[in-house]
């Protein structure tokens, strides 16, 4: 609607000539914000009167009652009450906080202190892996390729503990393998277990079975390191052997000297 027509309508209303249809139209324009209530002069006069009109003041009783009520509520607030503690609006955040802390506690406990049952599971798993490695090692030792057998022997270095089956296999390799490198590697692999007297005596016995000077020297050095006096007899046998190279004999002799 044009502004001029709106102005005309307002004018008509202010002169008290607006009919019901005009009133409806005015209401619509007021709702749309195109006519301001202050434009309607007659109503504005009355509205001003309403705004100006002073209501009587409340009595002093209101003040007294209010401050008394405030005092009572404050006193109640100071006292601890279970019903207030559990009042939902205030209790809900407390409950939420407690729940979160509980969950964090459980998670922390689970992560930092694994339960005995999970400990047992881990141990079982480790055991299974070890057994698998042993099996792999034993089967690799059967291979024809020396490289595969070398790999098998070096596998023992990854094992934290080994069974007698493994040490026996290593001793057998040391005594019987046709490849010198594999035998030397087997001797190397047995070194961590020399505290075991059975292994030490097997090593002493192994001296007489070796024909390779390299292995003989390596064994002699190990015996010196261990100060294994029982090996002297076996070492002397090597010295007595005509086929033993001179350098080897010299090294073994020096070794025997340090032990006797």
């Amino acid at each position: 609607m044009e502004q001029e027509r709106i102005n005309g309508l307002v004018e008509k209303y202010n002169q008290g000539q607006a009919g019901p249809a005009d009133i409806r139209l005015i209401e619509q324009l007021i709702e749309e914000g195109r006519i301001d209530l202050s434009q309607l002069a007659q109503l504005k006069q009355l509205d001003d009167l309403v705004m100006k009109f002073e209501t009587p003041a409340p009595s002093a009783d209101l003040d007294d009652n209010f401050y008394q009520m405030l005092k009572t509520v404050k006193q109640k607030n100071k006292r601890f009450s279970w019903s207030r503690f559990f009042a939902w609006p205030e209790f809900a955040p407390k409950l939420a906080f407690a729940s979160v802390m509980l969950i964090i506690g459980f998670l922390g406990g689970y992560l930092f202190f694994p339960s005995p049952s999970s400990n047992k599971e881990v141990a079982e798993l480790k055991d299974e892996v070890l057994q698998m490695k042993e099996m792999m090692m034993l089967s690799l030792l059967e291979k024809e390729s020396a490289t595969e057998r070398l790999k098998a022997v070096s596998l023992t270095s990854e094992m934290s503990s080994v069974s007698d089956k493994v040490t026996n296999a290593l001793l057998q390799t040391l005594n019987n393998d046709e490849n010198i490198n594999v035998r030397l590697e087997a001797l190397e692999a047995l070194k961590p277990f020399v505290r075991d007297s059975r292994i030490r005596s097997e090593l002493v016995r192994s001296i007489g079975k070796q024909d390779s000077p390299l292995v003989q020297v390596a064994l002699a050095e190990l015996m010196v390191q261990l100060q294994e006096k029982s090996s002297v007899k076996e070492l002397r046998k090597i010295l007595e052997n005509k086929n033993t190279p001179r350098d080897v004999k010299k090294q073994i002799e020096e070794g025997i000297k340090t032990m006797t």
């Binding site: 209501t55 409340p58 209101l62 003040d63 009652n65």
Partner: peptide, 30 residues
Amino acid sequence: KKPLFGFFYGMNKDPELSEDLVQNVFFRIL
């Protein structure tokens, strides 16, 4: 307190009741 009292008094023209209702409003606010 005055505007609220004025509102209630304008509604019921009962000063005592209006004061009670003002008090109720502040009680509910608390």
